[in-house]
Design a protein around this nucleic acid. Structure first.
Lengths: 248, 248
DNA sequence: CATTTGAGTGAACGCCGTTAACTATTGCAA
DNA sequence: TTGCAATAGTTAACGGCGTTCACTCAAATG
C-alpha cells in the first residue's frame, strides 16, 4: 500500500471534476443535458480529453449512477445508526431519509430509480450479484427486518400463501442476503413497494393532480406499515405523532 | 359538421404516420431514439417537413404521450366493462390489464409514468384540471371505489387519522372527481401507490435482483388489497385462486 | 384564370459523440 | 543526465441531431 503518485493524484482529481460537472448538468437539466462537450467546456478543456478518463459518455453516466447509489446507501446507514436500537424506528428513519433525499434530488432519483438509462443499465449489469447496487441498497432495509423478525415476529399472510406466491422465486435475494425467511422477504418486498411507489409518484409528478403535500400521505403509509410490523406501537391517532411536524 | 376536405384527410393521415414512426422509434430505442430526422427518413421525407405538423420534437412527443394515455384509458375501461358488476372484480381486472400493458410496453410506460420528459411535462401542464391525463386515468379507478364504498363501505383508518393526514389536501382530486369521500380517496391513493410501485419496479428493472416472476408478487398484493376492500371475499388460500394460472 | 394557402425541399447553423493524428509534458530507467 | 515510453492534452474531421430560412410547386379558393 504505497502512497499514490503525483500522476495518480492528478488523475483522481480530474475524474472527480468530470463527475462533478456531469452531476451539475444532471441536476440542472436532466440526464439528457449531460454532454461531454459541456463538461469539458466548464473545465476549460476539449471534449476528446475526457476519453482519457471514461471510454464513453454512457460509461461516465454509469459511474455517476454508481456514486449516487453509494451516496444514498451511506445516507440511509447514517439514518439507521442515528435511530437507536428499535428496528421499526430504524426503518422509519431510513424511509424518511430516503424520501427526503429523493424529493430534494429528483434528477438523481430519476437516473437510478426511473426508466432504464443506457449507461446505468450496463453499469448495473456489470455488477456481481452480491455487489449489485440494488442488493447493497436493499440490504440496508432487509437487515433490520431480519433482526426484528427474530426478536418479535410480525404478522404476515399465511405461510402456504407466501409459499405459493413467492416460493422458489426468491433465489436472487438469497444469493445476496443469505437465507432470508420468506416472511421477511414478503415484508420487505411489500413495504419497499409502497415506499418506492409513493416516492416515485411524488418525484415523477404523478400525484399532484390528486393531492397536495404528499409527505402527509407518506407519513400515513409509514405509520400503517409500522403498526403492521409492531402492533404494540402507539396508534397513529396518539397525540404528538403528527407527521411532518418539526420538518418545515 | 361538414365532411373533411381532401386536404384535411391527407393531413390527418400524415399526422398519424408521423406519430406511428415516432412510436416505433420509441419502442425500439427509448425516448432518446425518437428523432425528427429518423421519422422523416422512414417516411421518405425530409425533417423540416414535420414542422408543418408539429412545432417541435417536444410537442410531437407530448402528443404521443397523450395518445398513450387515451390508449391505456380505453384498455382499462374495456377491462372494467368485461369484469361484471362486482366493483372489486372490476378493480382487479383493471389492475391486471394495467400491469399487462405496462410489462408489454415498457418504453411507453416509461414515457408517461417515469421521470418527467420535457415534451410530456408541457403537454400535461397544458391540460385543464378535469381533462388532466392523470385525472382521466385515475377516474377509471376512483369510480368503482366510490360505488363500492356506497354499496358496502370497506374498512379504513379512523376518520380522525385520515382527516389529519389528508384533510384539506385533496382539493385537486375533488376538482376533477367531485366530492369524493375521504375514505375513498385514501383507498385509491393507497391502493394505486402499491399497484404503481410494483409495476414501476418491474418495468424499470428494480426488482430482478431480489426475485423472479414479479407477477406472483403482484397477484399477492392484489388479493391482499381485494380482501381489505371486501372481507367476505374467499381468502387467497382458497383452491383455484392460484395467480398466474392460465396466463403463462 | 389569378391568387393565396399548404406541403415539401435544400442549405445552413450550432449543438452533440466519437475517432484519428498529432504535440507537449511527465516519469522512469539505463 | 540522457533517452524512451506513457500520459494528457490538442485540432480537425465525420456523421447525426433540432431548427430556421429561403425557396419551389401543387392544390384549393375567389
Amino acid at each position: 500500500m504505497t502512497a499514490p503518485s503525483r500522476r495518480e493524484r492528478l488523475r483522481t482529481a480530474t475524474v472527480a471534476e468530470i463527475k462533478g460537472g456531469a452531476r451539475r448538468l444532471l441536476v440542472d437539466g436532466g440526464v439528457e443535458a449531460v454532454s461531454l462537450r459541456a463538461i469539458a467546456r466548464d473545465m476549460g478543456m476539449t471534449a476528446p480529453a475526457i476519453y482519457r478518463y471514461f471510454p464513453s459518455l454512457e460509461a461516465l453516466v454509469g459511474a455517476l449512477a454508481g456514486d449516487l447509489y453509494e451516496e444514498l446507501t451511506a445516507l440511509l446507514e447514517a439514518a439507521r445508526d442515528g435511530a437507536g436500537e428499535d428496528e421499526v424506528a430504524q426503518l422509519l428513519a431510513m424511509s424518511r431519509a430516503f424520501r427526503a433525499w429523493s424529493v430534494t434530488h429528483p434528477a438523481e432519483f430519476g437516473l437510478i430509480f426511473g426508466a432504464p438509462v443506457p449507461g446505468v443499465t450496463t453499469f448495473v449489469a456489470d455488477c456481481t450479484h452480491e455487489d449489485h447496487p440494488g442488493a447493497r441498497f436493499g440490504a440496508v432495509f432487509v437487515q433490520p427486518l431480519v433482526e426484528l423478525w427474530h426478536r418479535s415476529p410480525f404478522p404476515t399472510p399465511p405461510a402456504e400463501v407466501l409459499e405459493r406466491h413467492l416460493g422458489g422465486r426468491l433465489e436472487p435475494l438469497r444469493q445476496s442476503h443469505g437465507a432470508v425467511p420468506m416472511e421477511v422477504a414478503w415484508a420487505f418486498l411489500s413495504g419497499w413497494t409502497r415506499i418506492y411507489g409513493l416516492i416515485a409518484m411524488e418525484v415523477f409528478d404523478q400525484i399532484s393532480w390528486a393531492m397536495t403535500d404528499p409527505e402527509h400521505l407518506f407519513e400515513l403509509e409509514l405509520t400503517t406499515f409500522a403498526t403492521q410490523l409492531d402492533p404494540t406501537r402507539p396508534r397513529p391517532s396518539t397525540a404528538g405523532s403528527d407527521p411532518g411536524a418539526g420538518r418545515g
